[in-house]
Nucleic acid binder design. Structure first.
Lengths: 222, 222
DNA sequence: CTTTTACTGCGATCGATGTTCGCAGTATCT
DNA sequence: AGATACTGCGAACATCGATCGCAGTAAAAG
């Protein structure tokens, strides 16, 4: 049953011995700063320990593995979404506001896009986020199940859209140039046709596509 | 411009010297078999090399980094989606069929859920997949831009749904039990209310929720 | 107050991994 | 025939996550 207590269930302090010199929040903050500055790969146990003025082994008094440290970082990032700008009554506008805040948070911490979001036990901030999202959906007339599904879809959608947004700025990863090269091989006629669209859509600002896609998906789902 | 040729652009063979003893397809297949058997972490350069009967250094004649090897693996997995079961005329049914095939592929290669899908240049199989999806959408009356967006949303959605599906079977990660514990703290009233829903939805088979969510999202988006 | 117990901090270190170097061997070009 | 540009790969390097064990310390037990 209780197979192995995660970071959130474990007691923060032993019943004996000296008081811990560090705490999870400070450790997570140090790691988060490192990731913001130099990416997720810069978050090594040694680097985090050095930022805290200690050795790598000390961190293992607070965290069982590096993955747990990343869990802490992710939950700390989720904590930056406060979600006050949620208008009551209009659930779509509320969820869109929440999605926008998520987007801003992800743009601030792009390393979060790298961490594969395998469904782990929710941290406290992630749980608060879920609670707020459910609160926004209270005015919607749907299944509880559908509400959970909508929130899950929303999160995956936000990550995907921000990924596309940042990748476009970084390099021409899957940009039109690369696609054109793939279409030019003769095979893939539909791709070629799509790229030769005589009526291309007008250009958009960065946030416009985000709002449009999120709104359409949510209205269809709920 | 041509900053650094990826695996797909690079020539498969030098103009001089002996013929390569291995090739990308065999290397990818060996790595894929390892990942299927023991997870993505088991795909080390040494293990893949050993499976091919050689040393780790040899692989670097074919692949610049381990990440490139994973790219190869991912594209090989995409190649398993042939997409013949796509009825013409009905784009929704066609995309749903494609999504179902993607789901089956992901269930066969769960390690693909761990690789963070940062938008890289598409491999040949991924490009074929994109072409087929565009072909299915030909009968839909929408923007070309919307079609691309729908395909992107569809992919992210499939990954998310399969993640939820497999995590549920593995452990109770974010299962009802963990949620109930979080709701019991007194804060998070909406979460508590949602869990105490007097009219819970009837249980579903594994593929039913998938079909339902995918269909609703797509109808809303396109 | 003394002894016991259970904790904390952390230097030293282990095993494993991704990657590079350099050299011997080989097929193609001049 | 010689030069050239490749391939194969053993050996090694840097770095990482994680562990071990011991000294120090605070709380519980007697």
């Amino acid at each position: 049953m209780e197979q192995s207590p995660g970071v959130w269930e474990r007691p923060r302090r032993g019943r004996r011995g000296p008081a811990p010199e560090h705490d999870l929040d400070r450790i997570a903050a140090a790691a988060l700063a490192l990731a913001d500055a130099d990416g997720l790969a810069a978050v090594t146990m040694r680097a985090v320990a050095a930022a805290l003025g200690t050795g790598p082994a000390s961190l293992y008094r607070y965290v069982r593995t590096r993955d747990e440290l990343v869990e802490l970082m992710a939950d700390a990032a989720y904590g930056e979404i406060d979600g006050e700008a949620a208008p009551a009554g209009d659930w779509l506008a509320g969820l869109l506001a929440l999605a926008r805040e998520s987007r801003r948070m992800l743009l601030r911490h792009p390393w979060l896009l790298e961490v594969a979001e395998t469904p782990r036990p929710l941290g406290p901030n992630a749980a608060d986020y879920l609670d707020r999202a459910l609160g926004v959906l209270e005015s919607a007339e749907t299944d509880t199940r559908t509400k959970f599904e909508a929130i899950g879809v929303l999160n995956a959608l936000v990550v995907m859209l921000v990924r596309a947004e940042t990748a476009g700025a970084d390099r021409d990863a899957a940009g039109p140039a690369a696609l054109a090269r793939l279409a030019a091989e003769g095979r893939r006629p539909h791709l070629a046709a799509a790229l030769a669209d005589p009526a291309p859509a007008p250009p958009e600002g960065p946030g416009e596509a985000f709002d449009r896609v999120v709104s359409r998906v949510l209205t269809g789902l709920v």
